[in-house]
Design a protein around this nucleic acid. Structure first.
Lengths: 92, 92
DNA sequence: GGACTATATTAGAAAAAAAGAATATATCAT
DNA sequence: ATGATATATTCTTTTTTTCTAATATAGTCC
């Protein structure tokens, strides 16, 4: 692994290393969700959710599609994410 | 998962989500190392390495034992860590 | 077009993380 | 005890992250 690889991997871990984003990811692991859904399941405001989703999207962890008025977010690689979260949960 | 679990898991990911710490962990995955060894393998100063090792230790990812003048650091759960890093590396 | 709903973006403040320099501690060798 | 080596700790500054509030955009319904 070269320097850039470490940088890239560290960005990935930091991206998922936030409680709100982990909650979002856990929701998305169950199902695709639009922003409003996420907001209801998680205790924080709309702007904040939207920001966290933007971060996850920017780092290619989620993607979204328009559906009328709303945007549905989904995991780009749910299996990979599930494996990683399961491992991390085990380590408690 | 309750709130505390998300918090805890996020701390874990943030802890490993730093390029220098990832380098250290990769070294320790190969073998137990004393601080000087780590320092040679990684491009940063003694104090900084020591700080990062302290962070990893505080979060129970590594532990260390004294050996004469030096301290040897090792992973507390090398297998778990290897699995997680391998998965994250795959996701590129 | 205008109001309404869903979501995104921007800006600014506060908190957390990082790095480097300097200093401290502990062990070893003499 | 003294000096040397290995490592840890503290302090300060800079950078990054996070949150909140305010505003903007885009699509829907009338």
């Amino acid at each position: 692994m070269n320097n850039g690889d470490y940088e890239k991997m560290s960005v990935f871990f930091r991206t998922i290393g936030n409680p709100t984003r982990l909650k979002i990811l856990t929701e998305l692991l169950k199902n695709e969700r639009c922003v409003g859904d996420v907001e209801n399941h998680i205790g924080t405001g709309q702007a904040n959710i939207s920001q966290h989703l933007a971060i996850l999207k920017r780092h290619d962890i989620v993607d979204c599609r328009k559906e009328g008025n709303m945007r549905c977010y989904f995991l780009k690689d749910p299996l990979l994410l599930k494996k990683i979260l399961d491992l991390a949960a085990q380590g408690n």
